[in-house]
Design a protein around this nucleic acid. Sequence first.
DNA 1: ATCCATATTTTGTTCGAACATCCTTGCGAT
DNA 2: ATCGCAAGGATGTTCGAACAAAATATGGAT
Lengths: 247, 247
Amino acid sequence: MSLQPVAPPDDESTTLGIEIYARLRRDLIAGHLKPGERLRFRQLSAAYGVGIAPLREALSRLVSDQLVRFEGHRGYTVAPLSLSDLHDLCALRTELSCNALRRSIARGDEDWEAEILAALHRLERTPLPHSVEDRKTVDEWEQRHDRFHYSLIAACDSPWLLHFCGALSDHFQRYRRAVIVVTSSSEALLKRVREQHRTVAEAAIARDAERATAILAEHFQGSVEVVIRNYEEVSRSLSAGNGDDAP
Amino acid sequence: MSLQPVAPPDDESTTLGIEIYARLRRDLIAGHLKPGERLRFRQLSAAYGVGIAPLREALSRLVSDQLVRFEGHRGYTVAPLSLSDLHDLCALRTELSCNALRRSIARGDEDWEAEILAALHRLERTPLPHSVEDRKTVDEWEQRHDRFHYSLIAACDSPWLLHFCGALSDHFQRYRRAVIVVTSSSEALLKRVREQHRTVAEAAIARDAERATAILAEHFQGSVEVVIRNYEEVSRSLSAGNGDDAP
DNA sequence: ATCCATATTTTGTTCGAACATCCTTGCGAT
DNA sequence: ATCGCAAGGATGTTCGAACAAAATATGGAT
């Protein structure tokens, strides 16, 4: 087996449009761009150092990703957050992820098992950020967390299901990161979450579908409750009527 | 209070980008643009009578819709069809649609019932096209068929689920229309399909979730089988290796 | 002071041209 | 004859400017 060709420094065959799409997507999910915020071309152009053409391309894709909204002649805005969307999102995510996990358990091979253990290990070795200010640590943790959850369902053998789970996961992350200011809110909670990660991995590899899906559902339910609790608090505190939750 | 401003003839606040997106989407789903086909800008620009800027915008969105593929510096192509994708698509569509139908039955009100009956009536009154050449009739039938199936699940109260069902439905339509040359292949089949439409509507309105989902699943299963049978035939006949089914 | 109409500015939209990359063609060497 | 390389053409990408629509500011009348 050969090593990587020394260095893939800048991806060949990439375009500005692709790059800016990825960067905007990251910033959207990370909450760096605030929900409801207008995305003005000149402003973005200056901030990201690209022209308008690639920007339009990226924003168009993000519309179909449901991460930004578009109104003709009135420009693009960051997709708002709303409690009803959060509920919908989470319910479906639980259902689809459990479905995918079930399939994964039925079809996964040794590589799948190995990947789960690897992802879990990496996640557990990542320090939890103490505040949202510590952007680098948050990014790292979120990435590994995502990767762990992805590894669980990766063997479900359904690209469409994976795609939908990914979309829902991305959107949920938006809520989580918009809302959670301190992760160390409760030492007990953190311990429980870590325990759930470990147990769901264990059950999955033991091919115990019932147990694995039950724990996963419980894990999601727990996250949702925390997010919803914080969401209500946060939206109360900045009740400046930011066009949230509206019809 | 004033009346509507006489007439909303052409949608206000529309842009070329939006329009061309809708047109391309239609043509993609209808199979007017063939799977694997390269989408050259100059060609499209001439065919649709718009500049490159709106085209790029539309194509970008269609990438996120999974209807076209994009490779940096190598342009856009119509997303290919493949047997494995078809299987994946159909399995998930059945699952999600039945799920949505179940929720709809639990939450639907009288308007939901009325809409189902209206959509069913319109569908039954639409003549079946005798060949794919009769584009207008095919379009009309497909639209009403879609609308009927949408009406069944419309009350599921989950925008995300509806969105996913819609995406899967659109993609399945692509296969159906690419593959079915004559609908009048079997008089018995047609009769059965019509019967299924009628029965699923009836069961839904009677709030018999078990029966409704069973029939809907059966209905999908039947369509899938027809499409797959034709798919194999069609791809055998034009086995010029059109980059199908690849990894 | 408020309201409405108009002027101005800001912002989004579209086009055409310049630029970069990829693909094909044609030539020459092995 | 085949392979590799170079030149040319085709195609995708990006930018800047012209255009159009919307939002904002201005000024006058009630």
